[in-house]
Amino acid sequence: MKRIKLLLISTVLMVQGTMAQDAGEILKKMDEVLYSSKDMMGKNRIVLIDKNGKEKIREAIFKQKGNDKRLFRFTKPASQDGISTLSLPNDVMYLYLPSFGKERRISSGVKSQKFAGTDFTYEDMEAKTFVEKYTGTLLGEEGDLLVLELIPKSPKSGYSKLITKVNKEHYYPVYTEYYDKGGNKIKIAKYTFKKIGKYWNSEVIEMTDLKKNHTTKMIMYDVKYDTGLNDDEFTVRKLKQ
Protein backbone atom coordinates (compact mmCIF):
# COMPACT_ATOMS: atom_id res chain seq x y z
CA MET A 1 0.00 0.00 0.00
CA LYS A 2 2.83 2.35 0.94
CA ARG A 3 4.48 1.63 -2.39
CA ILE A 4 1.32 2.63 -4.25
CA LYS A 5 1.10 5.92 -2.33
CA LEU A 6 4.75 6.76 -3.00
CA LEU A 7 4.29 5.95 -6.65
CA LEU A 8 1.25 8.23 -6.82
CA ILE A 9 3.05 11.10 -5.09
CA SER A 10 6.09 10.82 -7.32
CA THR A 11 3.85 10.70 -10.40
CA VAL A 12 2.02 13.84 -9.27
CA LEU A 13 5.35 15.62 -8.65
CA MET A 14 6.60 14.57 -12.06
CA VAL A 15 3.44 15.87 -13.73
CA GLN A 16 3.67 19.16 -11.81
CA GLY A 17 7.31 19.49 -12.84
CA THR A 18 6.41 18.97 -16.47
CA MET A 19 3.55 21.51 -16.25
CA ALA A 20 5.85 24.11 -14.62
CA GLN A 21 8.30 23.61 -17.43
CA ASP A 22 5.47 23.98 -19.95
CA ALA A 23 4.34 27.20 -18.27
CA GLY A 24 7.81 28.68 -18.62
CA GLU A 25 7.78 27.87 -22.32
CA ILE A 26 4.30 29.32 -22.69
CA LEU A 27 5.44 32.57 -21.07
CA LYS A 28 8.38 32.73 -23.46
CA LYS A 29 6.05 32.20 -26.41
CA MET A 30 3.71 34.90 -25.09
CA ASP A 31 6.66 37.28 -24.91
CA GLU A 32 7.62 36.38 -28.47
CA VAL A 33 4.10 37.23 -29.61
CA LEU A 34 3.67 40.43 -27.59
CA TYR A 35 7.18 41.85 -27.56
CA SER A 36 8.72 40.71 -30.79
CA SER A 37 8.48 44.04 -32.62
CA LYS A 38 11.46 46.37 -32.39
CA ASP A 39 9.21 49.31 -31.73
CA MET A 40 5.62 50.46 -31.97
CA MET A 41 3.69 53.70 -31.93
CA GLY A 42 0.05 54.63 -32.09
CA LYS A 43 -2.89 56.26 -30.42
CA ASN A 44 -4.91 55.25 -27.42
CA ARG A 45 -8.54 55.94 -26.72
CA ILE A 46 -9.31 55.29 -23.09
CA VAL A 47 -12.97 54.92 -22.17
CA LEU A 48 -13.79 55.03 -18.46
CA ILE A 49 -17.17 53.51 -17.64
CA ASP A 50 -18.60 53.89 -14.15
CA LYS A 51 -21.13 51.61 -12.44
CA ASN A 52 -24.01 53.63 -13.91
CA GLY A 53 -22.68 53.22 -17.42
CA LYS A 54 -21.53 56.83 -17.65
CA GLU A 55 -18.52 57.21 -19.93
CA LYS A 56 -15.48 59.50 -19.88
CA ILE A 57 -13.01 59.57 -22.71
CA ARG A 58 -9.29 60.24 -22.68
CA GLU A 59 -6.92 60.14 -25.58
CA ALA A 60 -3.20 59.71 -25.79
CA ILE A 61 -0.36 58.97 -28.13
CA PHE A 62 2.34 56.48 -27.30
CA LYS A 63 5.68 55.24 -28.51
CA GLN A 64 7.47 52.13 -27.37
CA LYS A 65 10.84 50.62 -28.08
CA GLY A 66 11.74 47.10 -27.04
CA ASN A 67 10.08 46.18 -23.80
CA ASP A 68 11.47 48.79 -21.46
CA LYS A 69 11.15 52.20 -23.11
CA ARG A 70 7.81 53.90 -23.43
CA LEU A 71 6.57 57.47 -23.90
CA PHE A 72 2.91 58.16 -23.21
CA ARG A 73 1.39 61.61 -23.82
CA PHE A 74 -2.21 62.64 -23.10
CA THR A 75 -3.95 64.75 -25.72
CA LYS A 76 -7.47 64.82 -24.24
CA PRO A 77 -9.23 66.00 -22.11
CA ALA A 78 -7.95 69.56 -22.11
CA SER A 79 -7.18 69.45 -18.39
CA GLN A 80 -4.68 66.64 -19.02
CA ASP A 81 -3.37 67.73 -22.40
CA GLY A 82 0.40 67.39 -22.52
CA ILE A 83 0.78 65.38 -19.33
CA SER A 84 3.34 62.74 -20.22
CA THR A 85 5.17 59.81 -18.73
CA LEU A 86 8.48 58.35 -19.79
CA SER A 87 9.30 54.81 -18.65
CA LEU A 88 12.92 53.72 -18.85
CA PRO A 89 14.82 50.59 -17.81
CA ASN A 90 15.45 49.83 -14.12
CA ASP A 91 12.13 51.24 -12.93
CA VAL A 92 13.09 54.81 -13.85
CA MET A 93 9.97 56.81 -14.62
CA TYR A 94 9.49 60.52 -15.29
CA LEU A 95 6.33 62.57 -15.26
CA TYR A 96 6.08 65.81 -17.22
CA LEU A 97 3.45 68.33 -16.22
CA PRO A 98 3.24 71.22 -18.71
CA SER A 99 2.07 73.61 -15.99
CA PHE A 100 5.35 73.15 -14.11
CA GLY A 101 7.52 73.18 -17.22
CA LYS A 102 9.88 70.51 -15.94
CA GLU A 103 10.10 66.79 -15.57
CA ARG A 104 9.71 65.01 -12.27
CA ARG A 105 11.00 61.59 -11.18
CA ILE A 106 8.15 59.32 -10.07
CA SER A 107 8.76 57.01 -7.16
CA SER A 108 8.44 53.29 -7.76
CA GLY A 109 5.84 53.28 -4.97
CA VAL A 110 3.44 54.70 -7.51
CA LYS A 111 3.42 51.37 -9.38
CA SER A 112 0.45 50.01 -7.48
CA GLN A 113 -1.46 53.26 -8.08
CA LYS A 114 -4.06 53.67 -10.77
CA PHE A 115 -2.71 55.05 -13.99
CA ALA A 116 -4.37 58.42 -14.72
CA GLY A 117 -7.72 57.48 -13.19
CA THR A 118 -8.07 54.26 -15.18
CA ASP A 119 -8.48 50.74 -13.79
CA PHE A 120 -4.93 49.97 -14.89
CA THR A 121 -2.11 50.43 -12.42
CA TYR A 122 1.34 51.66 -13.45
CA GLU A 123 2.38 48.03 -12.88
CA ASP A 124 -0.21 46.83 -15.43
CA MET A 125 1.14 49.36 -17.91
CA GLU A 126 4.74 48.18 -17.58
CA ALA A 127 6.15 46.85 -20.81
CA LYS A 128 8.23 44.21 -19.03
CA THR A 129 8.08 40.67 -20.42
CA PHE A 130 6.02 37.93 -18.77
CA VAL A 131 9.20 35.97 -18.08
CA GLU A 132 10.71 38.96 -16.26
CA LYS A 133 7.59 39.65 -14.22
CA TYR A 134 6.08 36.27 -13.36
CA THR A 135 6.71 32.69 -12.39
CA GLY A 136 4.09 30.59 -14.16
CA THR A 137 2.29 27.33 -13.49
CA LEU A 138 0.11 25.61 -16.06
CA LEU A 139 -3.18 24.81 -14.34
CA GLY A 140 -4.84 23.10 -17.28
CA GLU A 141 -6.73 23.68 -20.51
CA GLU A 142 -10.19 25.02 -21.31
CA GLY A 143 -11.12 24.32 -24.91
CA ASP A 144 -8.62 26.23 -27.06
CA LEU A 145 -7.23 28.11 -24.05
CA LEU A 146 -4.35 27.36 -21.71
CA VAL A 147 -4.92 28.36 -18.09
CA LEU A 148 -1.88 29.69 -16.22
CA GLU A 149 -1.27 30.87 -12.71
CA LEU A 150 1.25 33.72 -12.60
CA ILE A 151 3.04 34.72 -9.40
CA PRO A 152 4.74 38.15 -9.50
CA LYS A 153 8.50 37.92 -8.97
CA SER A 154 8.73 41.41 -7.47
CA PRO A 155 7.72 41.77 -3.83
CA LYS A 156 6.68 45.35 -4.72
CA SER A 157 3.84 44.00 -6.89
CA GLY A 158 0.33 44.90 -5.82
CA TYR A 159 -0.87 41.40 -6.69
CA SER A 160 -0.50 37.98 -5.08
CA LYS A 161 -1.27 36.14 -8.31
CA LEU A 162 -2.87 36.34 -11.73
CA ILE A 163 -4.89 33.63 -13.46
CA THR A 164 -4.60 34.11 -17.19
CA LYS A 165 -6.10 32.27 -20.14
CA VAL A 166 -3.96 32.12 -23.24
CA ASN A 167 -4.87 31.33 -26.83
CA LYS A 168 -3.41 27.87 -27.42
CA GLU A 169 -2.64 28.50 -31.07
CA HIS A 170 -1.25 32.05 -31.07
CA TYR A 171 -0.17 32.48 -27.42
CA TYR A 172 -1.79 35.82 -26.70
CA PRO A 173 -3.82 36.36 -23.50
CA VAL A 174 -7.60 36.57 -23.80
CA TYR A 175 -8.62 36.83 -20.16
CA THR A 176 -6.84 37.60 -16.87
CA GLU A 177 -7.96 37.62 -13.25
CA TYR A 178 -6.00 39.70 -10.75
CA TYR A 179 -5.79 38.77 -7.05
CA ASP A 180 -4.74 41.12 -4.26
CA LYS A 181 -2.29 40.27 -1.47
CA GLY A 182 -5.17 38.85 0.55
CA GLY A 183 -6.02 36.40 -2.22
CA ASN A 184 -9.22 38.20 -3.28
CA LYS A 185 -10.11 38.51 -6.94
CA ILE A 186 -10.12 42.27 -7.56
CA LYS A 187 -9.93 42.81 -11.31
CA ILE A 188 -10.54 41.05 -14.58
CA ALA A 189 -9.17 41.91 -18.00
CA LYS A 190 -10.49 40.84 -21.38
CA TYR A 191 -8.35 41.20 -24.49
CA THR A 192 -9.20 41.44 -28.16
CA PHE A 193 -6.22 40.79 -30.39
CA LYS A 194 -5.91 41.60 -34.07
CA LYS A 195 -3.02 40.90 -36.39
CA ILE A 196 -1.31 43.94 -37.88
CA GLY A 197 1.26 42.79 -40.43
CA LYS A 198 3.17 40.04 -38.72
CA TYR A 199 2.37 41.14 -35.17
CA TRP A 200 -0.55 40.46 -32.86
CA ASN A 201 -1.84 43.72 -31.42
CA SER A 202 -4.02 44.04 -28.30
CA GLU A 203 -6.60 46.18 -30.05
CA VAL A 204 -8.91 46.41 -27.04
CA ILE A 205 -8.17 45.70 -23.40
CA GLU A 206 -11.14 45.90 -21.09
CA MET A 207 -10.17 46.06 -17.43
CA THR A 208 -12.89 45.87 -14.76
CA ASP A 209 -12.42 46.72 -11.10
CA LEU A 210 -14.79 44.25 -9.44
CA LYS A 211 -14.99 46.13 -6.15
CA LYS A 212 -15.90 49.47 -7.73
CA ASN A 213 -17.74 48.00 -10.68
CA HIS A 214 -15.76 50.36 -12.88
CA THR A 215 -14.39 49.49 -16.30
CA THR A 216 -11.68 50.94 -18.50
CA LYS A 217 -11.55 50.14 -22.19
CA MET A 218 -8.19 50.84 -23.75
CA ILE A 219 -8.48 50.94 -27.49
CA MET A 220 -5.35 51.15 -29.61
CA TYR A 221 -5.53 52.47 -33.14
CA ASP A 222 -3.30 53.84 -35.87
CA VAL A 223 -0.72 51.37 -34.60
CA LYS A 224 2.52 51.11 -36.53
CA TYR A 225 5.30 48.61 -35.91
CA ASP A 226 9.02 48.77 -36.64
CA THR A 227 9.11 52.36 -37.84
CA GLY A 228 12.73 52.65 -36.74
CA LEU A 229 12.27 54.65 -33.53
CA ASN A 230 15.65 55.36 -32.03
CA ASP A 231 16.67 55.76 -28.40
CA ASP A 232 16.59 59.57 -28.70
CA GLU A 233 12.79 59.35 -28.77
CA PHE A 234 12.84 58.09 -25.18
CA THR A 235 14.73 60.84 -23.41
CA VAL A 236 13.84 63.65 -21.04
CA ARG A 237 14.62 66.00 -23.96
CA LYS A 238 11.78 64.46 -25.97
CA LEU A 239 9.51 64.23 -22.96
CA LYS A 240 9.60 68.03 -22.62
CA GLN A 241 8.94 68.70 -26.31
Binding site: D91, R104, R105, I106, S107, S108, G109, K111
Partner: peptide, 11 residues
Protein backbone atom coordinates in the same frame (compact mmCIF):
# COMPACT_ATOMS: atom_id res chain seq x y z
CA UNK B 1 19.34 65.62 -6.97
CA UNK B 2 16.31 63.37 -7.15
CA UNK B 3 15.96 59.63 -6.79
CA UNK B 4 13.68 56.95 -5.42
CA UNK B 5 14.37 54.74 -2.43
CA UNK B 6 12.04 52.05 -1.15
CA UNK B 7 9.12 53.31 -3.19
CA UNK B 8 9.50 56.89 -1.98
CA UNK B 9 10.59 59.83 -4.08
CA UNK B 10 13.47 61.81 -2.55
CA UNK B 11 14.99 65.12 -3.58
Amino acid sequence: MATTIGGAGLW
